[in-house]
């Protein structure tokens, strides 16, 4: 299929979906109390954006989320690099971290509440440790495992400084996979941020539950669309950053390493 036909087909599917939705609500096949008309939903989204309603709640969530992602990345990378140097500790701890990545992380939220007490700290720690650091750690560790040991041996011939090996070999090695891991963690971290809001006000997750419980359906759908748009924008931004890094930084890094050898 040609690209233009594919785009046309996608637009057609989207338009059919919206028309079917509108018709279903108008013909009372679906109750408007539960599913609003797309036209009403669109009007509601524009209204929320114009009034700036819930922006403060979205700001709280996004702030916690961004701080969590940054903090979690630092923790994840540091832990992976630290454990890489102590092989025994790595082999001892990695199975538990792997187990943490597959169990429902939401069950640990009450423990975080008890441990960290302050609302923002709870949310940031929850996002950072359980949703970002674990994924970043596992990604970085698997990438470090792929590192050719001969490089490490070669570096050790030239220097005994751990800091230099860390800066010149380990950090560049993990950098590229790091962006891909952060991109993955960004999606999961948003799940953590919204769940934390649902459990502990304020935040956009709390607003979602309040709107659902008070049957303000069209507003609920509008907020969901806004969160979805934010999530897609964040994902696209991370993808752009990853592409940019892989295009611009690779040659520079290789040059830097070869210069250092000379």
């Amino acid at each position: 299929m040609r690209r233009s036909s594919v785009i046309m087909a996608r637009l057609l599917i989207f338009a059919t979906f919206l028309s079917a939705w509108q018709l279903a609500v108008e013909s009372r096949l679906v109750e408007e109390r539960f599913v609003p008309k797309p036209s009403v939903l669109m009007a509601n989204i524009l209204e929320i954006l114009a009034e700036g309603r819930y922006i403060d709640q979205l700001t709280i969530t996004i702030t916690n989320y961004v701080v969590g992602v940054v903090f979690g990345t630092v923790v994840g990378v540091s832990l992976a690099l630290a454990l890489y140097t102590v092989k025994y500790a790595k082999s001892l701890l990695t199975p538990y971290i792997l187990l943490l990545s597959v169990v429902p992380k939401v069950i640990f939220f009450p423990i975080f509440v008890k441990l960290f007490v302050v609302e923002e700290v709870i949310k940031i720690a929850f996002i950072a440790i359980l949703y970002v650091a674990i994924f970043v750690y596992l990604g970085v560790v698997s990438n470090l495992d792929l590192l050719d040991v001969n490089y490490l041996r070669l570096f050790r011939v030239y220097t005994r400084s751990h800091l230099k090996i860390f800066r010149k070999l380990l950090l560049p090695t993990v950098f590229y996979s790091l962006l891909a891991n952060i991109r993955l963690a960004v999606v999961f971290a948003l799940v953590g941020a919204i769940f934390a809001d649902m459990m502990l006000a304020p935040g956009v997750g709390y607003i979602l539950l309040i709107l659902a419980y008070s049957f303000r359906t069209s507003e609920l759908y509008a907020v969901i669309v806004l969160i979805a748009a934010t999530a897609v924008a964040l994902n696209l931004f991370m993808k752009y950053l990853e592409d940019w890094a892989s295009k611009h930084l690779r040659t520079e890094q290789i040059t830097r390493i070869s210069l250092w050898f000379n």
Partner: peptide, 19 residues
């Protein structure tokens, strides 16, 4: 289209399911 949906945190649909 389906893959772009996966970038959205799925837990935001839960209030709709509750409703």
């Amino acid at each position: 289209l389906i893959l772009s949906l996966f970038a959205i945190p799925s837990i935001i649909y839960y209030p709709i399911l509750l409703l």
